[in-house]
Design a binder for these strands. Structure first.
Length: 596
RNA sequence: GGGGCCGUAGUUCAGCCCGGUUAGAACGCUGGCCUGUCAAGCCAGAGGUCGCGGGUUCGAGUCCCGUCGGCCCCGCCA
C-alpha cells in the first residue's frame, strides 16, 4: 500500500502556510501528528520541520483519498495535494501558527508507515531519559528539541558571521594530537603505525592556536570539539564544543571587547535581544568573598559576609577552632524570612549543607529582640553586637553560618545562597547577568600533590607587576586571566599568554615541571616562542552551555543532538563497545580486564 | 571512589511503611460508531519477567542482601 513520490515535488513547508497562501494548490510532505476521524470529515495534522498544518479530507470531494486517510496512524509519512482555504470562523485554532487556514486535500500518497511510538511527539513529556536517548531520532522530532538544535545552528552562524567580519580566520587543528600533562584525563587513540603509542584527543586546541599566532595569523578562531575524560554532570559532557579564538598584539581589554561584540551579535541574531555592553567586571577576591565562588550569579544579592575577625578569639569553639586551624567563618543573612521558615526546612538545609562537606549548619532566627538558635547561648554580648552591626541584623532575619576551611565554607554557603535564592524566588529569570571575573591568582597550591599548579593553564601570563613575588610569595601573583560568567554559569575563560620563553621556563619551574620534561611535552611551543612570538591572548567559550542558557534547557543533553548518559554511553549507538580481536591484534593491544 | 532520589502495562504513575483473593489508573494501542475536530467524542477490548539475582516466610511487587541501569550532587573537570 506504500506509494512512490514519482513526480510529486513539495511546494511548501506545512508550518509556513498562512493567509498569504489562500486558494493556492500546494503539495505538502510530512509526518502525521494526529488523525481525527469523524466518520465523515477527517482532520489530519501534518507536521514537518517548520510546524503543523491541518489537512481536511472530505468524502464528498474525493472518496478514494478519504478512504486512504482513514487508515493513517501517528507518524506515518504522507504527501498531500490540496488547496489552502480559510478556516470557518468558529474553527480557528490560535494554538498553532497556521491556525487560520487549512488544506483541503484532493490527493494523498502514503510514503511510509511507522511502528507505534514508545513516547508521544510532544513538548511536555515526562519520559525516562534513557528511553529518549535510545529513541533519539524520535526525541529530536519534538518541537522543543528541534528548536534547541536550530537555535544552536543560529548561534554558530551568528558567531561565524561576527568573527569573519572582524578579521578572524578559521583554522582547523588536529583531533589526533598528543597527550599533554596537567589538566583533565585524556581520551587516547592507539596508533596502528606506531604500536604502543597513542594519540590523545585534544582537551582544547590551546597550544596549536598559540602556535598559529606565532605563525602570524593574527586572529584565529575555530568552533571546535574538545574531549575530556572526566565524570559527567548536567553541564558536562565528555565531548563538548568551544568557540575558540586567539588574537595577537592585544591586551585583556581587546579580547573582552571582541567577546562582548560577539555575544551582542549572537543574542541579537538568535533571540532578538539587545544586551548591554561592556559587561561589569569583578575581581576574583571579591567574587569569593561575596558569593563564595568564581562564577557569581549576580541576578540577585544575598551576599556572604566574612566574620572571621569577630570570632578569632571566641569561646565558641565551633567557630574559633576552625579559625585556629587556618579556616574562616562566613555568614549569610536571609532578610525577613523567619515567618516563611519551618524547623523542618532548617533541618533540610542542614542536610543540604552536609552534602557539600559541612559538619552542620548553624543558624539564628531573629524575632523581635530574641535570637532563637542553638548557638546563641555560646555567643558573648560583644560578639552579638558585632554580628548585628556587620550583618545588619533586623527583626525577621535568618542568619546562616559556616565555619571550616575556606574551601568548604565557600562551597557550602555559595550553594546555600543559590538554593535560598531559588526557594524564595529571588532570581529574576528574565535577567541576563553577564560578568567578567578578573584578577585570578596565577597559581594554586595543590594539597595532595604538594606543589603549585596553574589555576588557568601554565601558559597564562602573570601580571608583570606581580612577577617580583613569584619566588617569595607565589600565591600573591595574579594572572592576566578572565572568565566570563552568565547567570552564575561559567561560559568561557581565557587569558593573555606568555610569549617570552624565559618567563615560560620560569613558570614551568614554579609548577614543578622539569626543564627536560617540559621540553618533551611542550617542546614545540617552547621552541616556537624563541622565533619571534608576538604578544597574544584569547579565550574559549563553551558553546553548549551558551545554547543551554539561551534555550532555557536544564541539561547539556538537551542542546546536543546525540549526547551521552552519566556513565558516558550513547544509548542510541551503544557506544562504547567491545571490538573484534582482529582489530586489537592490528593495534597490538591486549585488553587485561580485572576479573571479579 | 562517595552520597541522595528512582526502576511496576507501550508511556507516566499508584500500590511498598503495615507481606495475604484475579497488581490498578490515566494516556497510548486494537475494533466499532460518528461531517468541524484540533488533549476530538462515545462504546467495547487487548496489554504485566513488578530491572535482575539471591535470601527470609506457608506466602514477597511489598521485608533483607547483592547487582545492573537512569537522574542529581561531592571528588574529578588546568
Amino acid at each position: 500500500m506504500l506509494e512512490l513520490l514519482e513526480d510529486w515535488k513539495r511546494t511548501d513547508y506545512c508550518g509556513n502556510l498562512g493567509l498569504k497562501d489562500l486558494d493556492r494548490n500546494v503539495i505538502l510532505m510530512g509526518w502525521v501528528q494526529s488523525n481525527r476521524d469523524h466518520g465523515g470529515l477527517i482532520f489530519v495534522d501534518l507536521r514537518d520541520r517548520e510546524g503543523i498544518v491541518q489537512v481536511v479530507f472530505n468524502p464528498q470531494l474525493n472518496k478514494e483519498s478519504h478512504e486512504k486517510a482513514r487508515k493513517l496512524k501517528d507518524e506515518w509519512i504522507i504527501a498531500v495535494k490540496g488547496t489552502v482555504k480559510r478556516r470557518p470562523l468558529e474553527t480557528l485554532n490560535q494554538h498553532i501558527k497556521t491556525g487560520e487556514i487549512e488544506v483541503i486535500a484532493k490527493e494523498i500518497k502514503l510514503l511510509n508507515t511507522s511502528k507505534v511510538l514508545p513516547f508521544p511527539i510532544e513538548n511536555e513529556i515526562k519520559v525516562d531519559e534513557l528511553l529518549r536517548l535510545k529513541y533519539r531520532f524520535l526525541d529530536l522530532r519534538r518541537p522543543l528539541m528541534k528548536d534547541n538544535l536550530i537555535l544552536r545552528h543560529e548561534i554558530v552562524s551568528a558567531t561565524r558571521n561576527y568573527l569573519n567580519s572582524n578579521g578572524f580566520i578559521e583554522v582547523e587543528t588536529p583531533y589526533l594530537t598528543r597527550s599533554t600533562p596537567e589538566g583533565a584525563r585524556d581520551f587516547l587513540v592507539p596508533s596502528r603505525l606506531n604500536p604502543g603509542e597513542f594519540y590523545a584527543l585534544p582537551q582544547s586546541p590551546q597550544l596549536l592556536k598559540q602556535t598559529l599566532m606565532i605563525s602570524g595569523f593574527d586572529r584565529y578562531y575555530q568552533i571546535v570539539r574538545c574531549f575530556r575524560d572526566e565524570d559527567l554532570r548536567a553541564d558536562r559532557q565528555p565531548e563538548f564544543t568551544q568557540i575558540d579564538l586567539e588574537m595577537s598584539f592585544v591586551n585583556e581589554n581587546n579580547v573582552m571587547e571582541v567577546v562582548e561584540g560577539m555575544l551582542k551579535a549572537i543574542f541579537k541574531l538568535s533571540k532578538g535581544i539587545d544586551i548591554g555592553t561592556p559587561f561589569p567586571r569583578m575581581r576574583y577576591d571579591e567574587a569569593m568573598l561575596k558569593y563564595g565562588n568564581d562564577k557569581p550569579d549576580t541576578r540577585f544579592d544575598l551576599e556572604l559576609s566574612d566574620i572571621t575577625e569577630i570570632f578569632k578569639n571566641s569561646g565558641f569553639k565551633v567557630f574559633s577552632d576552625p579559625i585556629k586551624r587556618g579556616g574562616i567563618v562566613k555568614a549569610l543573612n536571609l532578610k525577613g524570612k523567619v515567618p516563611e521558615f519551618s524547623r523542618k526546612e532548617l533541618d533540610d538545609l542542614a542536610e543540604f549543607a552536609k552534602s557539600f562537606g559541612a559538619k552542620g549548619l548553624a543558624w539564628i532566627r531573629v524575632s523581635g529582640d530574641e535570637w532563637q538558635s542553638p548557638i546563641t547561648k555560646f555567643l558573648s554580648e560583644a560578639e552579638k553586637e558585632e554580628l548585628k552591626r556587620t550583618l545588619k541584623i533586623e527583626d525577621g532575619d535568618i542568619i546562616f553560618f559556616a565555619a571550616d576551611r575556606a574551601y568548604t565554607v565557600n562551597l557550602v554557603l555559595s550553594n546555600l545562597r543559590l538554593q535560598l535564592g531559588e526557594r524564595f524566588n529571588m532570581i529574576d529569570e528574565s535577567k541576563l547577568s553577564f560578568i567578567w571575573v578578573v584578577d585570578f591568582p596565577l597559581l594554586d597550591f595543590d594539597e595532595t600533590e604538594k606543589r603549585y599548579v596553574a589555576m588557568h593553564h601554565p601558559f597564562t601570563s602573570p601580571k608583570e607587576a606581580d612577577l617580583i613575588h613569584l619566588d617569595t610569595a607565589p600565591e600573591k601573583v595574579k594572572a592576566r586571566a578572565y572568565d566570563i560568567v552568565l547567570n552564575g554559569v561559567e561560559i568561557g575563560g581565557g587569558s593573555i599568554r606568555i610569549h617570552r620563553s624565559d618567563i615560560q621556563q620560569k613558570l614551568f619551574d614554579k609548577i614543578g615541571l622539569e626543564a627536560e620534561d617540559a621540553k618533551k611535552k611542550f617542546g614545540f611551543l617552547l621552541e616556537a616562542l624563541e622565533y619571534g612570538a608576538p604578544p597574544h591572548g584569547g579565550i574559549a567559550l563553551g558553546l553548549d552551555r551558551l545554547v543551554m542558557l539561551l534555550s532555557g534547557a536544564n541539561s547539556l543533553r538537551d542542546v546536543i543532538a546525540f549526547p551521552k548518559t552519566q556513565k558516558g554511553i550513547c544509548p542510541l549507538t551503544e557506544a562504547p563497545s567491545p571490538v573484534d580481536t582482529e582489530q586489537l591484534l592490528e593495534l597490538q593491544i591486549k585488553v587485561d580486564l580485572k576479573q571479579e
